[in-house]
Amino acid sequence: MTTPTLVFLHGVGLDHSVWEPVAALLGDDVRVVAPDLPGHGARPPVGPAVTLADLADGVAADIPDGAHLVGFSLGAMVAQYLAIHRPELVATLTSVSSVCLRTPAERAAVLERLRTADTDVRASAQASLRRWYDGTDVDVELIARTERTLLANDPDSFVNSYRVFATADAELGPNLGRIAVPAMAVTGERDPGSTPEMTRRLAAAIPNCEAVVVPDARHMLPVERPAELVRILSTFLGRYARV
């Protein structure tokens, strides 16, 4: 039997290392692929005209046909785009801490965060760390690692990617009903941005999609609750692959 491939896609301003706590808990019965999105990690910066399609095209070559896509935040939007436009690549879709069809108030809030990122990257990073980690028991070194990753980004490239994150849900929303693979949407109960309401909104928009809310968790589920996320993934994928 072919070994299932899990493809992990990270959030804006992060890199593949955000998935290391999850990957460390997976067994040898799966193959893990965790490419950096264009403009992230060691990849060249992206320009102001970058689109969600560009980000998806930039990782598509790393994804074998019939992979199980697990996207976090911006990575979830990329995974959804691929499930719509490159369905041969996707066997199942898991969206972790994903936005969906922002309301006017939600859009205003993220556009304000985009303005902060455009004027003061350090202030943007500090605000993100507070939103993601305040009130959690995540080890301080893991939080410091996230901070180093955020501050290592090319500032213009980070803002260009953030702009995609802040706006592309409007493009994705009307097409989510075209996703034909089994899907799951997961978020933390205390996630201030990718809220439980938004996750339920995503599950309602995608056919054959279930919503899961992790009690007392915030946004950075791959770091804050890796064991819980692996358990949720294993239960879901166990129905569709030998995981």
Rank of each mutant, 00 (worst) to 15 (best):
Ala123Arg: 11
Thr199Gln: 08
Pro182Gly: 09
Glu147Gly: 13
Tyr133His: 15
Thr94Ala: 13
Ala152Asp: 12
Thr92Gln: 09
Arg122Phe: 05
Ile179Pro: 04
Pro174Trp: 03
Phe165Gln: 00
Ser97Phe: 06
Glu210Phe: 10
Asn153Pro: 02
Ala91Lys: 14
Thr146Tyr: 09
Leu93Asn: 00
Tyr133Ala: 12
Thr195Val: 02
Thr146Asn: 14
Pro182Ser: 10
Gly173Val: 05
Trp132Gly: 06
Thr94Asp: 06
Leu150Thr: 09
Ala183Met: 11
Arg107Glu: 14
Ala183Gly: 14
Ala183Ser: 15
Ala166Glu: 06
Val159Ser: 04
Ala203Glu: 07
Leu176Val: 02
Gln126Tyr: 11
Val90Asp: 05
Glu147Asn: 14
Val99Pro: 09
Cys100Pro: 13
Val186Thr: 04
Asp169Trp: 07
Arg122Leu: 11
Asn208Met: 11
Tyr162Pro: 01
Phe158Trp: 11
Thr195Asp: 10
Ala91Cys: 07
Ala180Tyr: 03
Thr92Ala: 12
Val121Pro: 00
Ser95Ile: 08
Ala203Phe: 13
Ala91Leu: 10
Trp132Phe: 14
Leu93Gln: 05
Arg163Lys: 08
Ser97His: 06
Leu151Thr: 03
Val181Gly: 02
Pro207Arg: 08
Phe158Tyr: 14
Ala105Lys: 12
Ser161Pro: 04
Ala180Thr: 11
Asn208Asp: 15
Asp191Ala: 04
Thr92Phe: 03
Val90Ile: 04
Tyr162Ser: 00
Phe165Glu: 02
Val99Thr: 13
Arg178His: 02
Leu101Phe: 12
Asp169Glu: 15
Glu197Ile: 06
Ser95Gly: 08
Arg102Asp: 12
Arg145Gln: 14
Pro174Thr: 03
Gly193Lys: 01
Asp118Lys: 04
Thr116Gly: 05
Thr116Val: 14
Pro155Asp: 02
Trp132Lys: 04
Cys209Pro: 08
Ser97Gln: 01
Leu142Lys: 03
Gly188Asp: 08
Leu89Val: 05
Gly188Ile: 04
Asn208Val: 13
Pro174Leu: 00
Glu112Gly: 13
Ile143Asp: 09
Glu106Asn: 10
Tyr162Ala: 09
Pro174Lys: 06
Arg200Thr: 09
Glu106Leu: 11
Val181Thr: 08
Asn153Thr: 03
Thr116Asn: 01
Arg190Thr: 04
Cys100Ala: 15
Thr94Leu: 03
Ser161Gln: 07
Cys100Asn: 15
Gly188Glu: 03
Val110Gly: 10
Thr136Gln: 08
Gly188Lys: 06
Ala168Gly: 05
Ala170Pro: 04
Phe158Glu: 00
Val99Ser: 13
Asn153Lys: 01
Ala183Glu: 07
Thr94Pro: 00
Glu197Leu: 07
Thr116Leu: 15
Glu106Thr: 11
Thr116Cys: 08
Gly177Phe: 01
Val110Cys: 07
Ala127Cys: 00
Ser124Asp: 06
Leu142Gly: 01
Ala185Cys: 12
Pro174Arg: 04
Ala109Met: 08
Asp120Ala: 01
Thr199Met: 06
Thr103Trp: 06
Glu112Asp: 15
Thr167Phe: 03
Ser95Ala: 15
Tyr162Phe: 09
Asp156Pro: 00
Val90Trp: 05
Val110Leu: 13
Leu101Tyr: 12
Asp120Leu: 02
Val186Glu: 02
Glu88Leu: 14
Ala180Pro: 06
Thr199Cys: 14
Leu89Gly: 04
Pro104Gln: 00
Asn160Arg: 03
Arg130Gln: 15
Gly135Thr: 02
